[in-house]
Design a protein around this nucleic acid. Structure first.
Ligand code: MN
Ligand code: MN
Ligand code: ZN
Ligand code: ZN
Lengths: 160, 160
DNA sequence: CTCCTATATAGTAGCTACTCCTATCTGTCA
DNA sequence: TGACAGATAGGAGTAGCTACTATATAGGAG
């Protein structure tokens, strides 16, 4: 059985921020206000935003923030294991700071990326010849199709 | 048990070309020399080329071919179900005319996309709540990591 | 606390991978 | 063998990064 992901508690959120600060120190990275703000924004959403989407959300509170900083920062986040690039095909890269086991469904119409969790997908077993030949760093089960809102013909904010 | 994909016979190749011509007619599309050449090139390779890669391969034989035509054509191929965009994260879109059940391993260093086939991955069962809420058009098991050549530290042609 | 410096940021320019536009051409059918 | 809707070539335009450089600042030394 699977379930759709839900919000985290303020305590969980704070714990993750604390972990992130430690992870930065560990990696020899400065905890700049921009870096923290970008991480918080990514952590607090389940929309799997692109760099541009994060930039637009942060701009009101951070008027001098540059898009390049957002791009550099999300790349840094993936490098220290605080986030990852969501699998998909085409368009802008989408990011995710949710490190718990879960999977993604992407709507090909509205480009929404929706979290779900199905335990059998968490640790799919690799075929022996692949495991023997390659170093597998990431195993993903990924679904694409039409989401509930687009099926109903409802008007959804189109992306791109 | 899984196995790595291998070449098709000339007879199989011809059969697929024949199918493609019929599929074009069926869809009300003209069978132009460019369209056929692009499909043949994509069908004859297991490299999962980008539009640019196809363009470079075809240029010697088709000096007046434009990159835009390649881009439009691979899009058309996906629309009529003669090809699909390979899943992945970031970079140029990569295409595949191989419609048989198989899966992909992508090397994060050299960007090679390698076919393999593991039967348990062919028809993974959807969680009921996802199947009920969304129309799932594509189910993908996707692996990423370091390929055999890159592990050996061999020099491989870097992409991008 | 204050200063120092390596690292990070802002602003901008450049690049890659498409996507759109328009004049010209051609596969298909009558 | 035309006629013409659909396709292509070439070029311009756009989105999404990526590189460059002067300025600013986090965080450690003193
Ligand atoms: Mn997610
Ligand atoms: Mn393939
Ligand atoms: Zn949708
Ligand atoms: Zn490799």
């Amino acid at each position: 059985m699977s379930y759709f992901a839900n919000k985290m508690s303020p305590a969980e959120f704070d714990a993750k921020i604390h972990w992130f600060v430690g992870r930065c120190r560990e990696a020899g990275l400065r905890v700049t206000p921009q870096r923290l703000a970008i991480y918080k924004e990514l952590l607090g959403t389940d929309e799997h935003p692109s760099a541009e989407m994060l930039y637009e959300k942060l701009k009101p509170a951070w008027p001098t923030l540059s898009l390049d900083t957002v791009n550099r920062t999300v790349l840094t986040l993936t490098e220290i294991g605080a986030a990852f690039i969501v699998e998909g095909s085409g368009g802008a890269r989408r990011f995710d700071a949710g490190l718990e086991h879960h999977q993604h469904f992407k709507c090909v119409k509205c480009e929404r990326i929706i979290d779900f969790h199905h335990e059998p997908f968490d640790n799919i077993e690799l075929p022996p010849d692949v495991a023997g030949k390659f170093t597998v760093l990431r195993k993903t089960v990924y679904l694409e199709g039409i989401c509930d809102l687009c099926k109903q013909g409802m008007k959804v904010v189109q992306r791109s």
